[in-house]
């Protein structure tokens, strides 16, 4: 604690600023390369999921560098760092709970609402005016059901 008192507003010289700039630029370029690489992958493949995970990790690393060095939090004293960072740990629970909930809602609907599941598998033609795409598919689907 005494140590951080003496050097609280040092750190953050121009050298550090340029170092962090280069790190952020490189991380962004890596993210973009992963994004381009991901484009041709099949939708449900495990590799695509892994690349998305890697992009999220890179995003967290970028966030760390911005908060720690640009916002100078790393050079503040421990009390302040803890006051800011510990409440944000709630996000860990938020993200897990809500995404799990969304996924569970999808599975429940697909299991118990066959109409919803069928609707979400109907392919629509490309390059339609807004909303007309949905109408067309419904118009085509309904008469054929009635005839059969």
């Amino acid at each position: 604690m005494e140590h951080s008192h003496t050097e609280q507003h040092e750190g953050g010289g121009t050298k550090e600023i340029w170092k962090v700039t280069i790190i952020l630029t490189v991380l962004t370029i890596v993210e973009l390369v992963l994004g381009f690489w991901m484009m041709d992958m099949p939708l449900q493949s495990g590799l695509r999921l892994a690349v998305k995970g890697a992009i999220v990790i890179l995003m967290m690393v970028k966030a760390f560098y911005i908060v720690a060095y640009f916002m100078h939090l790393k050079h503040e004293i421990k009390n302040l760092i803890m006051t800011i960072v510990v409440p944000l740990a709630l996000f860990i629970w938020f993200i897990i709970a809500f995404l799990y909930d969304g996924n569970s809602f999808k599975n429940l609907r697909n299991t118990y609402d066959p109409h919803y599941k069928e609707q979400s598998t109907i392919k629509v033609e490309k390059k339609k005016e807004h909303k007309s795409g949905e109408h067309h598919s419904e118009e085509h689907a309904k008469p054929s059901e009635e005839k059969h």
Binding site: F91, F98, K106, R109
Partner: peptide, 17 residues
């Protein structure tokens, strides 16, 4: 912002496409 983005994520996870 976190609430917005998590809400977005939840809806995206609950959608078939």
């Amino acid at each position: 912002f976190g609430a917005f983005l998590i809400s977005y994520g939840t809806i995206r996870f609950s959608s078939n496409g």
